[in-house]
Computed example of a mutant assay.
Amino acid sequence: MTKTSMLEGKSIVVTGAGGGIGRAIALAAAAEGASVVVNDIGAALDGSGENAGPAHQVVAEILDAGGEAVADTSSVSDPAGAEAMIAIALDSFGHIDGVVNNAGVLRDGFFHKMSTDQLDQVLKVHLYGSFNVSRAAAPHFKDQGSGAFVHMTSTSGLIGNLAQANYSAAKMGIVGLSKSIALDLQRFDVRSNCIAPFAWSRMISSIKADTDDQKARVAKLQQMTPDKVATMVAYLLSDAARDVNGQIFCVRNNEILLFSQPRPVRSVHRGEGWTVASIAEHAIPALRSAFYPLDVSAEVFSWDPV
Rank of each mutant, 00 (worst) to 15 (best):
T4M: 01
S5Y: 08
M6A: 14
M6L: 14
K10I: 02
K10W: 00
V14L: 01
G18H: 09
G19E: 15
R23W: 05
A26R: 08
A28F: 07
V37Y: 09
G42L: 14
G47E: 15
S48C: 03
N51A: 06
N51F: 05
A55W: 07
A55Q: 10
V58T: 11
V58P: 07
A60C: 04
A60N: 10
A69K: 12
V70R: 07
A71C: 03
D78I: 07
E83I: 00
A87G: 14
L90H: 03
G94T: 07
D97N: 11
V99K: 05
V100C: 01
N102S: 11
G104N: 07
R107V: 05
D108A: 04
F111S: 15
M114R: 09
T116D: 14
D117H: 04
V122S: 01
K124W: 00
K124D: 13
K124N: 14
V125C: 06
G129V: 05
G129M: 00
N132I: 02
Q144C: 01
G147K: 08
L158Q: 10
A163H: 07
N166P: 01
Y167D: 05
G173H: 12
I174S: 04
V175T: 07
S178R: 05
I181Y: 15
R187Q: 15
V190A: 08
V190L: 05
S192K: 13
S192D: 06
S192G: 01
N193R: 13
P197L: 11
W200S: 10
R202N: 09
S205D: 11
S206D: 09
D212Q: 09
D212Y: 00
R217P: 00
Q222Y: 06
M224N: 02
T225S: 03
K228P: 01
A234F: 08
L237Y: 02
D239K: 13
A240D: 13
A240N: 08
A241V: 13
D243S: 08
G246C: 05
R252C: 02
N253D: 15
N254T: 15
S260G: 12
Q261R: 09
R263P: 00
S267I: 00
E272F: 00
E272H: 09
W274E: 01
T275E: 05
V276F: 09
A277L: 11
E281G: 03
E281I: 06
H282I: 12
A283F: 04
A283S: 08
I284H: 05
P285F: 14
P293N: 11
S297I: 06
D304V: 02
P305G: 04
V306M: 07
